[in-house]
Each structure stands twice: as C-alpha cells, then as structure tokens.
Design a protein around this nucleic acid. Structure first.
Lengths: 115, 115
DNA sequence: TGAGTAATTGAATAATTCTTCAAGTCACTC
DNA sequence: GAGTGACTTGAAGAATTATTCAATTACTCA
C-alpha cells in the first residue's frame, strides 16, 4: 500500500513551512555553505538552527558533509532551487494582486483607513 | 514594519501542507467545482472539508461563490496551478532519486531487506 | 410557514510542531 | 588526554494546528 501522492506532497510543503528553513534553503540556493555561515546569516541560535537543519536533512532536501571540524550543507538537488523560484514568483504575483485590491478599496474609502 | 518575505513564504507553504487542501487545489486546477463535487471526490466529511476550504479562502488562494443553494469554489489565480505543477515535477524527481538510491542499496544487500 | 438539503461555524479535545536548554559528540590543539 | 570550538541531540513545556460534533445560516420547495 503506497502512501498516496497528495499525502507526500502535503508533508513536503509542511516541511517547507518554517521561516528558518526557508531562509536556509534560499541561502543554500547560492551554493553550499558551512553551518558557521548559516548561523551568521540567519542570526538564530546554534541549536535552533541545528534542529531545522535536521528537519531538512530527514526530508532528504539537503545534504551535510563534515570537513574537519566544520560541517557544510548543500541542496540535495537543483529542483529545490527551482521550487523556491516558483514560489517566489507566485507570491510576488499574489501580493501584487492583493496590493491592487487594497488600492481599489482605498479609492472608495479615503478617510477611514484606521488600521 | 513589513512582514519579512521569508515569513510570508513559510506561511504560504504551511497553508499548503495538508492532504485535503492539496487535493482540493488539484481538483480546482481542472476548473471551478461545487462543494458537493469536492465532497464526493475527496470522500471527507462535510464539516472537515469546510474547515479546510476556509483555510484556503482566508489565504486568498481560492474564491467561493454562491449560486442558489450550492457554493462553487475556484482557484483565485492561475499561479496556484503553476505552483502545483512545479511541486509535482520536483516531487517526482526527488522520489525518482530516492528510488535509485534504494536500488543501489539493494545491490549490495540483496538478502536482508526485511522492511 | 415549516421541513429538508447544502454548506459553514464555534468550540472542545487531541495531535503535531516549536522553542529552549542541558548534555552530548567529534575533531583539533596543547 | 584535558580543554576548547563547532555542531548535534534529547527532552520538556509552550504554542499551533487538526479533528470532531453540535449548532447555525442560507436556501428551496411544498
């Protein structure tokens, strides 16, 4: 009995659904990076970062390699970067749509926009 | 103070991270559908479906319209279908990669694959 | 108006996921 | 082999999210 595909997809998306994990994936999109650097770029605490890296590793979306005393992470494949690009495009378009909507609303309601 | 983009992205992905929501989005990818049909196609209980539809509505990713006694849902924009396609592609490639890996493992370990 | 169908909502409990901190491993250097 | 820096792990409590059931709204039709 195979796990249904929509379930796999849901797990995949859920795995992406965390700010730190997103940032890490985007940073790794530029190329492999040692933990030290991820730590500096994200500003989160070492053990928090490690927890999130573990999630990404378990999902098989990143790989880690130890060289001496430092550990370097990389995207497991080029597809991930593709997905992040797709997501970026979609979100910008969606946010732009919402901005337009807001503008339209403002036109008919110039004074009372309290919040 | 703008909400950082990586946070918006994370929320977006988390919103996608549920089996029923994924199925609904894929069904709506074929075109607008009345709730009755979503209900039949997914097999989930009415109120569960409604809860998930509400999540998608709040996120602005689908729209609903009432015509008489039935309510019809549709994707809010074409971008969503794009994203689902991107995700499908990526997942198939990732799963294929894992399958290869499994094959490699099997070669050196033909007898003991108990689970 | 009253009964019936379609869909949604509210709210309580259950389940998952996050965050944090203490402790642990691994490699290097003294 | 003790000490230190780099990173990871385990585990407990806090916070979010899912599931479920009862109640409700929005209609239709007789």
């Amino acid at each position: 009995m195979p796990v249904p595909l929509y379930q796999v997809k849901a797990e995949f998306f859920r795995m992406l659904g965390h700010p730190v994990r997103i940032r890490v994936l985007e940073l790794l999109g530029e190329g492999p990076k040692p933990v030290r650097e991820l730590l500096a770029d994200t500003g989160v605490e070492a053990s928090s970062l490690s927890q999130q890296l573990a999630v990404l590793r378990r999902a098989g979306i990143v790989t880690s390699e130890r060289e001496g005393s430092t550990v370097t992470y990389a995207l497991a494949g080029p597809d991930v970067a593709d997905l992040m690009r797709a997501a970026r495009r979609i979100l910008t378009e969606m946010l732009a749509g919402q901005a337009e909507l807001l503008d339209e609303l403002r036109e008919s309601d110039t004074a009372a926009a309290g919040k």
